[in-house]
Amino acid sequence: MAFRQKHLLGIEPLHPDEITTVLDVAERYVDLNRQANKHSDALKGLTQINMFFENSTRTQSSFELAGKRLGADVMNMAMQASSIKKGETLIDTALTLNAMHPDLLVVRHPHSGAVDLLAQKVNCAVLNAGDGKHEHPTQALLDALTIRRAKGRLHRLNIAICGDIAHSRVARSNLMLLGKMENRVRLVGPPTLVPQQFKEFGCEIYDDMAEGLKDVDVVMMLRLQKERMDGGFIPSEREYFYRYGLDADKLAHAKPDAIVMHPGPMNRGVEIDGTIADDINRSVIQEQVEMGVAVRMAAMDLLARNLKSAREADAGVMV
């Protein structure tokens, strides 16, 4: 079993074998989560703190549930409401928390790189729950698990990521992960929201949905991030839906068995038509949420194992 990371800060530092390891462990937690007794004691005695400097319902509750099912003591801190408002810096907040001896720190922050910065200052395992426009590794891992279960494999697939790529950390992490696992990735969206620089990561860029979706195995829709937009990237939501919203006509260009994904929360009628989202034959959106809990359990389990062996090694040196 190969997973050597101290933190989960992004997909970029991961080796393909490490990605496979996380997914394999997560499969076992999928089974556990479907039983009546959902408890394991993998994190028994450990403290998990969720620090969200940005609003989140889905990711935060998914992490909270994952920690609780593994037996950790879980604490949620809503950081928008707290000391940041009183002028405390990120580093001071980190040092304060560190003094409480957490074992797992789950962090979301509105600025790219903020979680990396925080990880340098604490001596516990840090999980990035999304930093600015940089990475959102557990989302990419849960998407990968969903694809692997639906398609039976996670390589040599044609995958289209559609919509607001520029503002999306989900897109960056997915791009990285799917590339590492040797898939062909296409980015589809209006040129104002799909930076041309992404060509250098080895993906193809389309500004037409019909062409972009032609014969793909997976259609991954992204949310139009209204809150990150600082001025006119698209003329209007209705024009966006007409040209880039996923409806039955556009989906007809994909392979007949193509699956539809969305990281949520959805803007129905903006980037995705409600009937597609609800079509149980095509949409795996609910499954993604289920995989999210399992993948987060797997990630925290693996990091906790590394943390324990590192601490044992340290103790050995001291003896």
Binding site: S112, G113, H134, E135, Q197, F198, E200, F201
Partner: peptide, 8 residues
């Protein structure tokens, strides 16, 4: 490429 990778 670098700024895109780092999300800056």
């Amino acid at each position: 490429k670098f700024a895109a990778l780092r999300g800056l």
